[in-house]
């Protein structure tokens, strides 16, 4: 192991050890909270837009491919570009960041909820109708519970992506863990950059684990452990 690397690691440990970094406005807890806040608000707004679209199209079976293609094109637009663009339109503030993150959050949730709804066995769909369920009952008692694992997988993908990308908020002067990356790069303080990177990675992993747990909780017992298996 070379000296530069051990130097860097020592720097990181010193950074984490410094009590000044654990309280006050620019501290690790404060930036983490802000970061999580950006992620939550963007994912929730994204879900409010994406899930009704994906679920609605999947339920009716119409126009789904079009929606998926449009959201996939959206996926190709870089979030950084969106931030700059909206920043130029509305100026400083939360809006450019949230717009970019929401745009990032939407495609996986649209695609997954659409596919989840489409993959409900046509025989099951037909049975629910033939047994005399109303349209609403078919949606809420049969199709949604069956599609739930895939819908939640989409939410999970979006949330993790947004969690990592929320670092961009720092570029337009906001807080969040991106602060450490940008400040560190500017000051050539590699220890600080690494601290930021480690924290973002940790948050993404925690998000993944928490949502995986949530996904399990909302998946009906009869559906657990049989994804992809033949009937």
């Amino acid at each position: 192991m070379n000296d530069a690397f051990s130097e860097l690691l020592a720097g990181v440990i010193r950074w984490f050890g410094d009590p000044a970094h654990w309280s006050g406005a620019g501290s690790i807890p404060a930036h983490t909270l802000k970061h999580v806040f950006y992620m939550l608000i963007s994912t929730v707004i994204g879900a409010l837009i994406a899930l009704p679209i994906g679920i609605g199209l999947g339920h009716s079976g119409r126009g789904g491919l079009l929606a998926i293609n449009i959201t996939n094109i959206g996926r190709a637009v870089p979030s950084f570009g969106v931030i700059i663009f909206v920043f130029l339109l509305v100026g400083y503030g939360l809006v450019p960041v949230i717009v970019a993150l929401v745009a990032l959050a939407i495609p996986p949730m649209v695609t997954n909820s659409y596919v989840g709804m489409r993959e409900v066995d046509p025989a099951v769909r037909q049975a629910s109708k033939a047994l005399g369920m109303t349209g609403w009952q078919r949606l809420t008692r049969v199709e949604l519970p069956i599609a739930m694992p895939l819908i939640m997988a989409g939410v999970r993908t979006s949330a993790v992506q947004v969690m990592s990308t929320a670092t961009l908020a720092a570029y337009v002067g906001l807080g969040g863990l991106g602060r450490y990356l940008i400040d560190g790069l500017q000051l050539r303080d590699m220890a600080q950059v690494l601290v930021g990177a480690i924290l973002v990675a940790l948050l993404a992993i925690v998000t993944e684990l928490l949502l995986a747990l949530l996904q399990r909780l909302v998946t009906a017992r009869g559906l657990r452990g049989r994804q992809g298996s033949a009937e």
Partner: peptide, 22 residues
């Protein structure tokens, strides 16, 4: 239609059972 269907039993080729229900 829904009231009618609740008074008529329906059996299909692929049982169409709800996988998330016992």
């Amino acid at each position: 239609a829904t009231r009618l269907r609740r008074r008529i039993g329906y059996v299909m080729q692929h049982s169409g059972l709800f996988p998330h229900h016992t």
